[in-house]
């Protein structure tokens, strides 16, 4: 990785952290409603994995899909930050035109195929995206990010089996943050190491530190190469931690402050910025400058856009239920 890329990735992670912090503030001001699941602490995983994917528009690029903790995955995949923020504000200019909200960011224009609220549901959808790539004969792969808790759904087992039987080009990224809401993994899951579970399906798998973006990138590169070369699916597990509560109303009574402090020492932004300073690539002041630039963009562009955008029109309530411009040859009406 060259120096410019290192600095860019650090700035991206700081941006993602700030984006999430800012949504928290907007939520407290009641500008954002519903459930809001923040990604703070896990930035190295999505940033590092997707840095190694083919991102952007069109048939050369990979498909990305995830659960409800989806803002950062969408942003890294290329969804404009203005539109993601506007979606949280429920605006017509939002990624999903204000119809989806925090848990359902969609931007198919950059192959980001959505955030889904049903735990475990994206497993088969991801395998389906991969089946589509394979069927079309492109070099694309599908990348599915889900939590540790999702692995206890039937869809996990069903999909791992089919992905392997059909040799689908799909990378499953398990973001193991140790908890499913307030239930610690030891209390819900017979096997602690999640990557071991897919050996039942004879699938390639590995486990890595998810708090160090350089480790994530190196591991992701190998896994992505494996999948893209047609060798079949791959399951990669990253050990990570979410710094905030599960959603907005979470008193975190299920974990200790000591545990949190231990993980905060491994904050992916802290770890990486310290390294870049030690390598002489940056100074504390440079980081302060980065933060100022990010804050400026956040307030004067992203939040401004979200605030000033129009809401969807009530007349459009029934839009998007079915295809709004159907071909009458298939749809009708029936000529009597």
């Amino acid at each position: 990785m060259n120096d410019a890329d290192k600095k860019r990735l650090l700035k991206e992670m700081i941006f993602f952290r700030r984006f999430e912090d800012r949504t928290f503030e907007a939520y407290m001001e009641r500008k954002i409603g519903g459930f809001l699941h923040l990604y703070s602490g896990q930035e190295a995983v999505a940033t590092g994995v997707l840095e190694k994917a083919m991102l952007g528009k069109g048939t050369d690029n990979d498909y990305v899909i995830t659960g409800y903790r989806d803002h950062v995955h969408a942003l890294k995949a290329g969804a404009p930050a203005r539109e993601v923020m506007a979606e949280l504000y429920g605006k017509e200019t939002g990624s999903s035109r204000g119809r989806g909200g925090s848990m359902h960011i969609f931007d198919p224009s950059v192959n980001f195929m959505g955030g889904y609220a049903l735990v475990g549901q994206p497993f088969p959808l991801a395998a389906g995206l991969a089946m589509g790539c394979k069927h079309k004969g492109t070099k694309q792969i599908a990348i599915c990010f889900l939590g540790d808790g999702a692995n206890n759904q039937g869809t996990f087992h069903e999909t791992m089996n089919m992905a392997k039987v059909w040799n689908l080009p799909v990378l499953f990224v398990c973001e193991n943050n140790g908890y499913a809401i307030g239930t610690h993994i030891d209390r819900s899951t017979a096997v602690k190491d999640q990557y071991k579970r897919v050996c039942a399906y004879d699938m390639q798998a590995s486990q890595h530190d998810g708090m160090d973006i350089e480790i994530v990138m190196e591991a992701a590169e190998q896994a992505i190469d494996f999948v893209r070369s047609g060798k079949g699916p791959y399951f990669i597990e990253f050990m990570t931690y979410r710094f905030r509560g599960h959603s907005m109303s979470d008193a975190k009574g299920y974990r200790t402050r000591e545990e949190e402090i231990e993980w905060e020492k491994r904050d992916p932004i802290r770890v990486f910025s310290k390294r870049l300073i030690e390598q002489g690539l940056l100074t504390e002041d440079d980081i302060k400058t980065m933060e100022r630039e990010i804050d400026d963009e956040m307030e004067n562009d992203i939040i401004k856009f979200a605030e000033e955008s129009p809401e969807p029109k009530v007349e459009d309530l029934n839009k998007f239920v079915l295809d709004d411009n159907p071909d009458p040859r298939w749809i009708g009406p029936l000529q009597q």
Binding site: S95, S96, R97, H104, F106, G114, F320, L322
Partner: peptide
């Protein structure tokens, strides 16, 4: 279709 605002 609906929750993607008609984009998927």
């Amino acid at each position: 279709r609906y929750m993607s605002g008609g984009r998927a």
